[in-house]
Computed example of a mutant assay.
Amino acid sequence: MNDRLKIASWNINSVRARIDIVERLLREEEPDILCLQETKVVNDIFPTAMFHQLGYTHQVLHGQPMHHGVAILSRVPMREDDRLDWQANGEPRHIGVQLENGFRLENVYVPAGGDIPDRTLNPKFGQKLDFVERMTRWSETLKTPTLIVGDFNIAPLESDVWSHKQLLDVVSHTPIEVEALAGMQAAHGWVDLGRTFIPAPERYYSWWSYRAKDWAASDRGRRLDHMWASPQLAAQATTHRVLEPCRSWTRPSDHVPLIVEFEF
């Protein structure tokens, strides 16, 4: 019998504030592993109980008060917890684990980068570019088949945003960010699973601003969330989905979950 593995990734924008919809996702989709970004909670008060009740007994947490934070919750064993400081300031934006089937799973939350796409006028933008550069250097060294998921905060393709022309000067879709992300992809030959299963120029968004009164009607979305795999691992991916309906759930995140399934 073939082994299957189902992995979900979601920028939850506070796991404690949205624990009800996290539980709903786990009950409806039953992924083997859930990667969360922007958990906004220290490890000591992470809401572990619900995950344990649903069988997610393997937990790797990396948090801080009120900001950032990443977590991996799993029904299958995992080991070798890495916490790389690609922000170079101690913020909890990455964790990586080794799975028993031999591949690595990396969960990352790339900085948003502020509002001005100029590192001189806006240091946060420079930090974001430097973060991607460190990820690129790391990608060059990878030997183990790897899946990296999370909120990259960059929408690289024209069909990844509601208006390419209007967002060219908006942080997340500027040419310098897109170029930086392309450099990271080339550094390891990463396969963009989202665009493998939902080829451009088909519309593909994973984030809609809270500012929109009716996010679905205006549909001013961006594809900020990604799942990339090493070439040998990408060949074993069987499905990839974007769960847009989650954006309408009670007290939603501004991001929606991504799900990928593998067969080994």
Rank of each mutant, 00 (worst) to 15 (best):
P117Q: 03
I176R: 09
D160Q: 12
G55Q: 12
G126Y: 06
H67M: 11
E179K: 12
K165Y: 10
R93I: 10
Q127G: 13
R137M: 15
H67T: 13
F152W: 13
S159T: 11
Y109I: 01
F131C: 15
V178L: 13
H94R: 13
E133H: 15
R119V: 04
V161L: 11
V110S: 01
A71M: 05
T174K: 10
S172Q: 10
T120D: 13
G69M: 02
Q127Y: 02
W138C: 06
E179C: 11
T144G: 04
H68N: 15
T141N: 13
G102S: 13
W162L: 10
L157M: 07
Q64F: 02
L84A: 09
I176T: 15
E106C: 10
L142T: 00
S163E: 08
E106R: 02
L121G: 07
R79P: 00
H164I: 03
Q59D: 11
L129S: 10
L54D: 05
N107E: 08
Q127A: 03
T57Y: 00
V171N: 12
I148F: 00
T136V: 04
N122D: 14
E140T: 12
T136M: 05
L129P: 13
S172G: 03
W138H: 14
G63I: 02
N89K: 13
G114Y: 08
E100Q: 08
L54S: 09
K128F: 04
R79W: 04
E140R: 15
H173R: 10
S159G: 15
V171A: 11
R104N: 10
P111A: 11
E80C: 13
G102K: 14
T146G: 06
W138T: 13
M184P: 05
G55A: 11
L142N: 01
Q98L: 14
K143F: 09
L73D: 05
P65H: 05
R119W: 08
K128P: 10
E80G: 11
K143Y: 00
G96I: 00
G55N: 04
L167H: 06
G96P: 02
D115W: 13
V60E: 04
F131N: 00
A71E: 02
E106W: 11
V97S: 06
Q185N: 05
G102N: 08
S74E: 01
L61N: 06
F125C: 05
Y56N: 03
E179T: 14
A88C: 11
K128E: 07
L99A: 11
V76P: 06
R119S: 14
F103S: 05
R93V: 02
E179N: 08
T141K: 15
E91F: 01
V97H: 03
E80A: 12
G69A: 08
T144R: 07
V161Q: 08
P145K: 09
L121Y: 03
V60W: 03
V170C: 11
